[in-house]
Design a protein around this nucleic acid. Structure first.
Length: 187
DNA sequence: CCCTGATTCGC
DNA sequence: GCGAATCAGG
């Protein structure tokens, strides 16, 4: 795992939002809590108050869940799987992938995710899909939480979005293909 | 013992 | 720069 600009952005975003290092590490697959903390430290991110144990309980999600999946981690995984898509000049690729995935997910009309709040995030480890739903900045950000595929991190549905095999497509092409496939699945 | 972030230091 | 080990605290 290397710290791509996407991952750094995600880290910045989640750190700013107040997620714990463990939670961030969980979202950014492939890194440990220590790695997150170390990176945050090197990046000069604002220090957390002395052992912020009693982080204010984030309220459960109210209202209808947003269906759009805008997952930084899966998007990053996709980009990585697709090859060095974010290399020279390929800056906006990640954002476009996220948009594509969001649309694909929306079109698929995946629903049924139970209410989840960040405080319960750790319980997701046990067989629940950790695909992020919504924008981490939003209050109603949560995880898919559908039954995960075996011991994987995502449900069967999101697994298709997150891991696409070792094809040598560009990130954008891969995202487009993913969108097409998901649309097909959605009927 | 669970968790949290902070720091060190060999790589 | 990276992050495991370690430390300190709730």
């Amino acid at each position: 795992m290397t710290w791509t600009s996407e991952r750094e952005d995600l880290l910045r975003k989640l750190w700013r939002q107040g997620l714990s290092a463990r939670q961030i590490a969980y979202v950014i697959a492939g890194v440990t809590r220590n790695a997150v903390i170390g990176k945050a430290h090197r990046m000069g991110l604002p220090k957390r108050s002395a052992t912020m144990t009693h982080r204010p309980k984030q309220r459960p999600v109210r209202g209808r869940p947003s269906l759009a999946c805008i997952g930084g981690a899966p998007a990053a995984a996709l980009a990585e799987d697709a090859g060095p898509a974010t290399g020279a000049g390929g800056e906006g690729v990640s954002a476009r992938i996220e948009r594509e995935l969001a649309r694909a997910s929306f079109e698929a009309g995946r629903s049924g995710a139970s209410e989840q709040d960040w405080g319960k995030l750790m319980t997701l480890t046990g067989g629940a899909c950790k695909w992020p739903i919504g924008d981490p900045v939003d209050a109603d950000f949560r995880f898919c939480n559908c039954p995960a595929e075996g011991s994987r991190s995502y449900c069967a549905f999101h697994l298709r979005l997150a891991y696409r095999g070792r094809r040598r497509r560009s990130g954008v092409a891969a995202a487009a293909q993913a969108g097409a496939e998901i649309s097909a699945i959605a009927g």
